[in-house]
Structures are given as C-alpha cells and as structure tokens.
Nucleic acid binder design. Structure first.
Length: 448
DNA sequence: CGTGCCGGGGC
DNA sequence: GCCCCGGCACG
C-alpha cells in the first residue's frame, strides 16, 4: 500500500487490505486489522467499521471506504504520522449507500465514492490532519491478488491469531468482550478468515507493537470509545479474561433477561421484542446486537475451557473465550489458590469488603501461598472447598487464621499425608525405616 | 489415641 | 554424627 503522505510503501497497510479482502465473506470483526489497538472489539451492526464492511463487502464489489481508529493508530505508530487515517477500499461498483445511510452517525468517518474513481485521496481525508492511504482499484481486485500477498496475509493473520492475553489495558472484566458466537454463526463460510480466529486473538499486529499501544493512548481512541459508548449505549468491549463466564442480558426496556448464549439471547430478542420470525434470522441478524449486552462473571467452577482453535465454531457454541496461553497466567492474586479454592475476583473482593477486619488474613494467605517461606514448609491443606461461593469465604478465613497460627507460633512441619516408614513397614520392621523415622525426625524416604 | 516430627540430650 | 526419647500438634 502506498502512503500518500510519506510516499512510502507500508506493509502494514498491505496486511490490512489483504485481510480486508480476504475476509470479505467473514464478519466484521475480521476486518479489524489491529484490533488490539481498537478500543472496541465487538462490532455489531451499529459498529461503524463492522456494519459497513459486513454489509457491503460480502460481494467484494463495493466502493465503500472505511477508516478506523485502529488503522489510524497503527499507521501513525508505525510510520510516525499522527492522525493518519487508513482507508480500505474495495474494488468494484459502489452499492454501499444504503449501509452508509444507516450509519449517518459515521459519515464523518466513512466516505463513499464511485468505484471508478482513480486512486486519489478521498475528499474526506482533507478534513483530517492525516493522510489517506488509498490503493488503486486495479490493484484491489481479488483475482489479481497474487499468491505472495495471499501468503503474506495468511501469515499475518496466523500471527494475529497467536494467543495473547497479556495486555493489562484490555483486561477489564466488567466490560463486555467481543461477541463471537452470534456473529460466527452466520459466517461459517469465511475460510481462513474466520471470526474465531479474529476474536480469539485480536492482535494482528506483532506482539511487540502492543506495548506501544497501551501507554500513550491516542485521543482518537478515547473519542471513539466515547462515541461508541454514547451512540451504542454499551461499554466498549474489551478482551475477555480467563475464567470468565459470559452471560448475555437483554437490554430491552424492562426485560433484563439473561441468557448464556448469544444465539439464545438473539433469539429471545428477535422473537420477543423484535417480533420477527426466523426468516429474519439471517438478514437482520445483527440488529439484536443492539439489545443485549454481555455480562461477564468470573466462573469459579470451571477453568477456562479451551476451545478448538479452528476457523469456525458451531453457531450454538458459547462465545469462545480467549485461548489460555502460557503467557497469560491467571491473575496472580488467585493463582495460588485457584486450584484448591477456586475463587472469583468478585467473591474475592467481597471477602475483602465484607470481612475487612480479616482482609489481612486473606492477603497473607495469598502471599503465603504464592511464596512459601523456605524456613517453614507450611502449605495450605490440600482439601478443596466444595462450593466456591460461601464456602470459599469461610475457607479463606479459616485458612488465614491457620496461617496466622502457623506464623505466630514457631514453624512446625505440617503432618505429612504420605505414608511414612512407620506405616509402610510397621513398628515391627523398624530397622527398615529410614534413619529420620527411626530417630523420630521428619521422614526422608517418603517425602510429602 | 495414633502418628508425625521437633527439640533436646546422651554417647 | 548417631541414636534415642520427651513432648507437642494434628487428624
């Protein structure tokens, strides 16, 4: 892609364009080329980028131009052009006016022009400080994309699908994450460019570009987020943490129905509120997105369920959680106790708030479990709490008290659960005991 | 009460 | 260092 401003070829733009074209049959989220920089990851029909792309690009014959803050940031960061806007233009005739009309609020960001227009800077670009990156239409035809570019696009997309969950700026558990299942259900024929890939790893850019995104957030991103929140009346979706159980709440006035699947909530909205039958299930599938929101809750019962990393998932499958990766450990506060005493951040905070006088104990539990002191091999008992909620509270308190007892008193090795020489050989075979057992010391043979 | 094990002492 | 034992804590 040729940058009109710096007169250089930007490979990132090529990537974006390639992905854009290759995902013509996919859903809108696939077109997020640098979705980790996007303030929002769930792009419903009302999403500017998503709506336009999904509405106009399935045929690959649209002349719509989309600019996104993501691309803006991407280019500006890579090439050092602040405010640079990236325009994706599909080749062919233009029939995108309808979509653009639906999105009048986005007309400041989206512009359409005849597809026969030569590769020139669109008029909308003159408004902004940025430069527009355009690609001649002759180069945009999908059939003319050579194999190298396709391969590059595939590689880039596969890179973008690497598991990634280490962005601290995208770990807001309260914000609804991306919507996968519903969008995915209608875009199963997208080939390589599936929503599952894009959703599970919204980081098409190289991972090293991510630290650049978090510290200095451009103002456009914030504005976009505000715009999104104001216009769409929904918080900007972010990445979903592990252990997050997702529910979907109907935002229809005085409804508030909560379902656990996108399909379910969409069906509910469609049938109950929109009063539409199944014949609209395909054409107006995105309209339900306006009326439900995702509700994340930490799932203490089930660890993150690793979904198969495939291009498409069944439509009825719940929204896919991000793939747990070695680079994305569970929250450190709960990591040590997550196995024996599964906890949720909410419940943990509840513990801290409702038992504030015992909060130090809980904290000590965490710290003690996280870092065992070398002098005292005290370890939390392996008993797991059966029920995570109330039981965890009780358990946490008792464990904290236990810890305090252990640390106020001189350290004493906890009684080992393993069989010792005494149990194994019996008192009659005391000569077969290990020396420590014979000396009534800590067993050296059957260590815990 | 049985067991694990720490602390202490004798050799 | 080896060996033993009192005594405590825990289940």
């Amino acid at each position: 892609m040729f940058c009109q401003l710096c007169k250089t070829t930007n490979i990132l733009n090529i990537k974006s364009v390639l992905i854009f074209y290759s995902e013509s049959n996919s859903t809108e989220e696939n077109n997020i080329t640098d979705s980790d920089m996007l303030p929002k990851t769930r792009l419903g029909k009302r999403s500017p980028l998503g709506a336009l792309v999904s509405a106009t690009c399935p045929t690959g014959e649209t002349g719509i131009t989309v600019t996104t803050a993501a691309g803006q940031q991407a280019i500006s960061r890579v090439k050092g052009h602040p405010g640079l806007k990236v325009y994706f233009q599909c080749g062919g005739g233009g029939e995108s006016s309808g979509a653009a009309d639906q999105l009048d609020f986005m007309q400041s960001e989206v512009s359409t022009w005849p597809s026969s227009r030569p590769s020139a800077v669109p008029p909308s670009c003159s408004r902004s400080v940025s430069s527009c990156i355009d690609v001649p239409r002759s180069q945009r035809r999908p059939e003319e994309v050579d194999v190298d570019e396709l391969m590059a696009a595939m590689v880039l997309s596969s890179l973008s699908c690497s598991p990634r969950l280490h962005s601290p700026t995208h770990t807001d558990p309260t914000a609804p994450p991306m919507d996968c299942g519903g969008e995915l259900s209608d875009s199963g024929s997208s080939g390589y460019w599936s929503v599952g890939l894009a959703n599970s790893s919204p980081a098409p850019s190289p991972p090293n570009a991510e630290p650049d995104a978090s510290p200095a957030t451009p103002s456009d991103e914030g504005l976009d987020m505000e715009l999104e929140q104001v216009l769409f009346d929904e918080p900007a979706p972010r990445k979903r943490k592990n252990f997050v159980k997702v529910a979907y709440r109907c935002m229809w006035p005085s409804c508030g129905k909560v379902l656990t699947s996108v399909v379910g909530i969409k069906r509910h909205i469609r049938t109950t509120h929109l009063c539409r039958g199944s014949e609209h299930e395909r054409c107006s599938r995105s309209e339900e997105d306006f009326y439900y929101t995702e509700v994340n809750q930490w799932d203490p019962q089930s660890p993150p369920h690793t979904l198969p990393f495939g291009p498409a998932s069944p439509p009825s499958s719940p929204p896919s959680t991000p793939h747990p990766s070695p680079s994305s450990p569970p929250p450190p506060a709960c990591s040590a106790l997550s196995r024996s005493a599964p906890s949720s951040s909410g419940s943990f905070m509840q513990v801290q708030s409702e038992h504030s006088y015992q909060a130090p104990a809980v904290g000590h539990v965490m710290s003690a479990a996280a870092s065992n002191t070398p002098t005292c091999r005290w370890m939390p008992p392996p008993t797991s709490c059966p029920t995570p909620g109330l039981a965890f509270r009780v358990r946490s308190v008792s464990v904290g008290e236990q810890w305090l007892q252990h640390h106020s008193a001189p350290c004493r090795r906890i009684r080992g659960e393993a069989k010792k020489c005494r149990k194994v050989y019996g008192i009659e075979h005391r000569d077969q005991w290990c020396t420590a057992c014979r000396w009534k010391k800590a067993c050296q043979r059957f260590l815990d």
